[in-house]
Design a protein around this nucleic acid. Sequence first.
DNA 1: TGGAAGATCGGCT
DNA 2: GCCGATCTTCCAA
Length: 179
Amino acid sequence: MLTGRGVSVRLTEVEAYLGETDPGSHAFRGVTPRTRTMYGEPAHLYVYLSYGVHACVNVVCSPAGEASAVLLRAGEVVEGVELARGRRPTARRDAELARGPGNLTRALGIALTDDTAALDGAPFALAPAPHPPAPATGKRVGVSGHGGTDAFPLRFWIPGDPTVSVYRASTPRVRVTRP
DNA sequence: TGGAAGATCGGCT
DNA sequence: GCCGATCTTCCAA
């Protein structure tokens, strides 16, 4: 269970990213200014910007010097629901409050400036679930190309949970015609 | 300096 | 349920 800024969520969907050996990881190409956090201390947040719009949050799990992290993709808001609703006005159902990486980040009030923040105290804390259910495993979604993603069944989710995001086919990128 | 790619969400039908 | 729009970051020339 993850707590951040007055909102607690029960994580229902995560993905693991190993590092240089993982084609889908940002660290695959090596250390960059953006991925530097992944090489930092464990139990810290790695927040990155996706598609220039959405913020996605990871938890660094390897010791300093190694790059491995867990991407938090979805969760169920169990505490501070009202607060989360205020942050997510477009969500019609509670299950949508933290469905999807970007939405989860918003519901928790995490911003890009929270990159490298520690998880062992306020305002962010990570605690084991009281009754951890058996998660399902499978291929990761949203990771395109590089051809090796099928060999990494590193996605874990709670089967049947309404807050788990569904697979979404990749959109063909249409370059905006510039005048 | 330029071009291409990317771990997505919201709105409308 | 499906379709479109958005910006940043990284690598190569």
